[in-house]
Design a binder for these strands. Structure first.
Lengths: 238, 238
DNA sequence: AAAGATAGTGTACAAGTTACAATAAGCGGG
DNA sequence: CCCGCTTATTGTAACTTGTACACTATCTTT
């Protein structure tokens, strides 16, 4: 096949992590983008990302980027896909491990500090052209998110600790780009027994205030162990 | 944050692809392993893998490894997860992009040729210790496969072009490590309309021969476009 | 107190899932 | 050729889940 090589003879490549950070606000699904202030793709919006350090674990690198850019810690973070086409970066070969995270947008405090870069939320259905292959990465992340909220209770990561059923429904509708039937949605989600009624209601709304719920993760863990499968369906109806 | 660096100052790492190649034979789920003939982990079984070449796409590298090791082409291949702990390789930092593939084991012709290495199938439920972190990679692949056959008709990739319903059922049972109820399994899979009855039967068996079916991918594509979702459930019963 | 807005709820029908057992079709041996 | 062995094939009733659909309740504002 080929002669035995010394380890250091093998090709090495730069590698980064890029983070698709999802948030939910004003009834819309958003992602956090950073405006580049140096070439290549200067002035384009891009996914937050950075080079992985020599002794740094991949997930740690993704968490670091998240912390440095947004000040947020302990948020939902999961590896998505690795993108490594030889031509994806024009300064040389860069392989990127993409992560996606789900954050409560209210906790976001942009840490623009030393960066002098814009960091802002963009609604996903009207993105301009992004740097590098980041549009493709976002597309893969969206696809993953759509599947993910179907089979795991991750949607709650995008909502505040106390939320109304209508807010939760709007979240699903925004991600799936469908409309769901109110009574059936409530029946389904409540029947799983994962929501705790907080016996509180919304305040400051000009109509009947809705009850507030929280997601009970402890119960979910217990149910999961005994074979329970979370599952929501995109029904076809209005 | 930090001074602007020249691109070439960033840390670089070696990159490999590793391939979890699944097959199904004798009613058991198997994976293809290669016995290492050089340190580190000399004489340990390992996943087939190799360094990614400078201008090579990741998926192309995975396909190349598959071809070189097994002679197989055009098989099901999908990216699984990227493993990059700083300590996972003791000669230096090596990041591996793991792929998994599903092959028809009957097509396998080991190309041991120049390699002088053993390449053999191992049943997944009794693996010895593997090289590097390959046990973890296999575990992730197994997990993925279990989920995958539930929601996409990929199981057929592991079966010969013509198969019986019992074989298909055994495949699901092997992967899920459950037993399924015969009548309900058949009803479910046939009701999807994805199987074409070949009007042929098994030969050379000492009992009533079973009908042979094939998976009709064209129909699946059509159904998928119109919103159909493949879905099989691990029922709890025998 | 009336208007405006959103919250909250029940029921009948359809579709899908589950549990369960008897008959059919080949082969091989006597 | 008949019997026994082995696996293949099939239906139905009870139950669970999904779907379609519209009215009343509660709060705020004027």
């Amino acid at each position: 096949m080929q002669a035995r090589k010394n380890f250091n003879d093998f090709f090495k490549s730069a590698f980064t992590v890029d983070n698709v950070i999802f948030g939910f606000d004003e009834g819309k699904l958003k992602i956090l983008l950073i405006r580049r202030n140096e070439p290549p793709f200067e002035d384009f919006w891009a996914l937050p990302g950075y080079f992985v350090q020599p002794k740094e674990d991949l997930e740690a690198a993704a968490a670091r980027v998240l912390r440095e850019m947004t000040g947020m810690e302990n948020v939902y973070l999961e590896q998505l896909h690795t993108f490594g086409s030889p031509g994806r970066h024009n300064l040389g070969r860069v392989i990127t491990v993409a992560y996606y995270s789900l954050v409560k947008i209210a906790d976001f405090r942009p840490r623009a500090a030393g960066l002098a870069q814009d960091i802002t939320w963009h609604t996903v259905d009207d993105l301009e052209q992004l740097a590098f292959d980041h549009e493709e990465i976002v597309a893969v992340a969206l696809d993953k998110l759509k599947k993910s909220i179907r089979t795991r209770p991750v949607g709650f990561e995008l909502l505040p600790p106390a939320f109304t059923l209508t807010e939760l429904q709007h979240l699903y509708e925004a991600i799936w780009e469908t409309e769901l039937e109110k009574r059936n949605f409530r029946k389904k989600i409540l029947s799983m027994g994962l929501l705790e009624d907080l016996n509180r209601t919304q305040e400051g709304v000009a109509h009947r205030p809705a009850k507030l719920y929280r997601f009970d993760e402890a119960i979910y863990r217990k149910l999961e162990e005994s074979g329970f499968n979370f599952e929501m369906k995109e029904s076809k109806s209005k």
